[in-house]
């Protein structure tokens, strides 16, 4: 695909350099059939370096994941080659089944059907904790 011009899709811009791959993983983009480009270490006037992800498809993306990984990132939604929406994503209060608690003493370790929920407990320092055992998510 031509990474500069997308007809219908999403461009996640201004990703903190180095966070692009993590965002790719947590958004589950490896499961998509459409073209996906991660551009790393793009020189940006504002940020020094940044990462960009381009998804060439009108699929649904869980914006909360973007807010969790990198609340400074911007999302550009493109239709028919035109930018129709540009938004920044705030940190979500909770995030479900994206981050999985690794605490072996947590109830989620024995009850498989439980949803894994992390909760924002400290906005200033961007701290999320497991809803059940309060272990810090990273």
């Amino acid at each position: 695909m031509n990474i500069d011009s997308i007809q219908n899709g999403i461009v996640i811009d201004h990703i903190t350099a180095g966070q692009g791959m993590r965002l790719y993983d947590l958004l589950g983009l490896e499961k998509l059939d459409c073209s996906v480009a991660i551009i790393k270490n793009v020189v940006s006037g504002k940020m020094g370096k940044k990462d960009i992800i381009k998804i060439d498809s009108g699929i649904h993306v869980n914006f909360d994941v973007i807010g969790y990984v990198d609340p400074g990132a911007t999302v550009n939604i493109i239709r028919d080659g035109k930018l129709v929406e540009k938004r920044t994503i705030d940190m979500p209060e909770t995030l479900t089944n994206v981050i999985f608690c690794k605490n072996p003493r947590c109830i989620t370790s024995t009850e498989q059907e439980l949803k894994h929920v992390v909760k924002l407990t400290d906005r200033k320092n961007k701290v999320y904790r497991c809803l059940y055992c309060e272990t810090k998510a990273n």
Binding site: R105, C106, I107, L114, C130, L131, Y132, C133, E134
Partner: peptide, 10 residues
């Protein structure tokens, strides 16, 4: 009372 953390919340 439960040995697993968070069980009473569940």
């Amino acid at each position: 009372r439960h040995p697993k953390e968070g069980a009473p919340l569940v």
